[in-house]
């Protein structure tokens, strides 16, 4: 990321460390959220077939979408309640020696939670596009539900699942409200790109820093969206092929 224009590097060392922290927080957040999102997406896509009640699916769908519509400060406060020193999950994690309060791990958790709606949406659509008759064929060939998912459903849905990961990554890069509520704004620990921009805005001479960080944020987000769109198109292409192959059956 550091390249030279004349003799001055494009990004200062502080900016590089903010960028690296932001990428670390987003990547870890998305990876931690992935199994949960994949599970939810599968239940929402196939739960009806598996005999789950419609009302349960509607409630799950609503809960998964909550971070999209809740004020982020509320999400951050709820995380504080659950993962704080006195929170039920926080105490349990502390027993394992894992602390999230005021740590970059907490920022990753907040970023992951905020990415859930977008990730589940994209994964669900791609899982729904996989022909369940192929899963049936796998079952008659001796594959249990897990093997059938891992060897047939997941590979066929992979472009959409990856698009979900990239979208979630882009979303968590921009995460602000829940993070600052949950783990505060500590340079070098929880101060990701948006929080650094917010801090620079408070400084009387912060304009150039704000501009530079903002350009960086736009570039990262655009890049992630382009990658996600390319993957989504590949998914649409693959889906079209399958429909053609099976004709009207």
């Amino acid at each position: 990321m550091v390249s030279a224009v004349g003799n001055r590097p494009v990004l200062s060392p502080e900016e590089v460390s903010i960028l690296i922290l932001s990428l670390k927080v987003s990547v870890v957040g998305v990876l931690v959220a992935t199994p949960f999102c994949l599970g939810c997406a599968w239940v929402l896509a196939r739960g009806g077939r598996a005999g789950l009640a419609g009302l349960g699916l509607i409630v799950l769908d609503a809960v998964v979408h909550l971070p999209l519509v809740l004020p982020p400060v509320v999400t951050g406060w709820l995380l504080l309640l659950a993962f704080g020193a006195q929170g039920p999950v926080g105490r349990w994690l502390a027993a394992w020696g894992i602390g999230v309060m005021f740590r970059w791990t907490g920022a990753a958790l907040a970023a992951g939670v905020m990415a859930v709606p977008l990730m589940v949406r994209s994964m669900r659509l791609s899982l729904e596009a996989v022909d369940p008759r192929l899963e049936q064929a796998a079952r008659t060939l001796g594959a249990g539900p897990w093997r059938s998912f891992a060897t047939v459903t997941l590979p066929l849905a992979m472009p959409g699942v990856l698009a979900g990961l990239v979208l979630g990554f882009a979303r968590s890069l921009g995460e602000f409200g829940a993070t600052i509520t949950f783990v505060s704004n500590i340079p070098g620990e929880t101060q990701t790109l948006p929080l650094a921009i917010y801090s620079a805005l408070q400084l009387p001479d912060g304009d150039t820093v704000v501009t530079r960080l903002a350009v960086l944020a736009v570039a990262l987000s655009l890049g992630a969206l382009v990658v996600a769109e390319v993957l989504a198109r590949r998914m649409a292409l693959a889906g079209g092929m399958r429909r053609e192959r099976f004709g009207g059956l």
Binding site: R133, L134, Q136, A137, A138, T140, V152, L156, M241, R242, R245, F246, G247, L249
Partner: peptide, 10 residues
């Protein structure tokens, strides 16, 4: 089982 639409994994 051999299905009418063969159902090979694409």
């Amino acid at each position: 089982m051999v299905f009418q639409d063969h159902r090979l994994f694409p």
